[in-house]
Design a binder for these strands. Structure first.
Lengths: 177, 177
DNA sequence: CAGTTTATCCCCACTTTTCCCCACTTTTCA
DNA sequence: TGAAAAGTGGGGAAAAGTGGGGATAAACTG
């Protein structure tokens, strides 16, 4: 899989630690004391449009924002993260057609949500329709956001991208990541 | 690609110890202040999806991350190692299709795990399926990660690559190994 | 404006899963 | 060869996930 190949590349390419010192980049400390989102979970959307958030992510998502994502899924950001993103995105030159469209999706499609006592959020109907959410939902952690997929769409997407994984890995290793 | 083969070669050349037994030679060492995993172990996955981690690796893996690996196995990284990677990858611009696919595989395919008091981790079902894990599991140390294989897949892989190890080595000559 | 309907959300109850802990067997090492 | 450590399995408490009833609020209608 591309993941493994990519990991292998990084492992081999990792520069030797100068003087054996640890990596002290400023963003590392911040990430260590925050629990970042990783992993994939399978939950049910109920008849009232409620969706349980995996228990270990709830602390970071007391206040959150759901919005239209890419590839037919929804993005769920902690409110603070979303605000940062919104600033960047809204700064894009809106004389460009694509930028306007992107803005309208990400910002115009957004909805504030809160986690209730049972650990659920309510996904508004227009977003359920957008992402084609039925009952079985896959929630994936992507470090600073969650993605909400209909389980069937996720399975399909996954099957397709795994086929292309080698090419993707090569493309990316060319970026010098 | 060459790099991936290089790692494979390391696997092939390592001396085998008797199946089912744990090799207790003083294998753990530190290179550049990083943990180093060497050796091959045979453990059982129980009905609850729990898998014992070889005792001598536990210190480095109190907190760890399991991810989809190459050739139908899983990778187990110390959490700190994985975080370095995750930070870089998650910083990629998600407006690019390939970046999104890559993130979803690497981060969405991963799972945070902790070692319990009995020295076991829980392998989530979707990863057990991915790697086709049954009951008999082979765990191999690969320098800075562990690999988790279904014993049957491992035996098959091993049998095939041993036959071809000379040819594989030829392709590596350019690396100055 | 009153009455009806619709939506929201709070709470309870039930099921399933997780995880903590104990117990037993096997292996290792002094 | 006995003690300690590693590996394995399972019972049961606690937490997570799920579904629905019903109170309050909002919207709609005659």
């Amino acid at each position: 899989m591309l993941v493994g190949l990519f990991l292998s590349l990084l492992v081999i390419n990792r520069p030797q630690n100068k003087a054996g010192g640890a990596d002290k980049s400023p963003c590392r400390a911040r990430i260590n004391n925050k629990s970042m989102f990783v992993g994939q979970y399978s939950h049910n959307l109920d008849a009232k449009g409620r969706l349980a958030i995996p228990a270990k992510f709830r602390g970071e998502l007391k206040k959150a924002v759901v919005t239209k994502g890419l590839d037919n899924c929804l993005f769920l950001y902690p409110k603070k993260e979303f605000e940062k993103l919104a600033e960047k995105v809204s700064a894009l030159d809106f004389s460009k057609t694509n930028n306007r469209a992107f803005n309208r999706n990400l910002l115009g499609g957004a909805m504030d949500v809160e986690i209730d006592k049972q650990g659920r959020i309510i996904v508004p109907e227009y977003l359920r329709n957008f992402a084609g959410l039925k009952k079985n939902i896959t929630i994936t952690g992507l470090y600073n956001r969650l993605e909400i997929w209909d389980a069937a769409s996720w399975a399909k997407y996954n099957a397709e991208t795994e086929k292309n994984s080698n090419e993707i890995a090569e493309t990316l290793s060319g970026l010098g990541v």
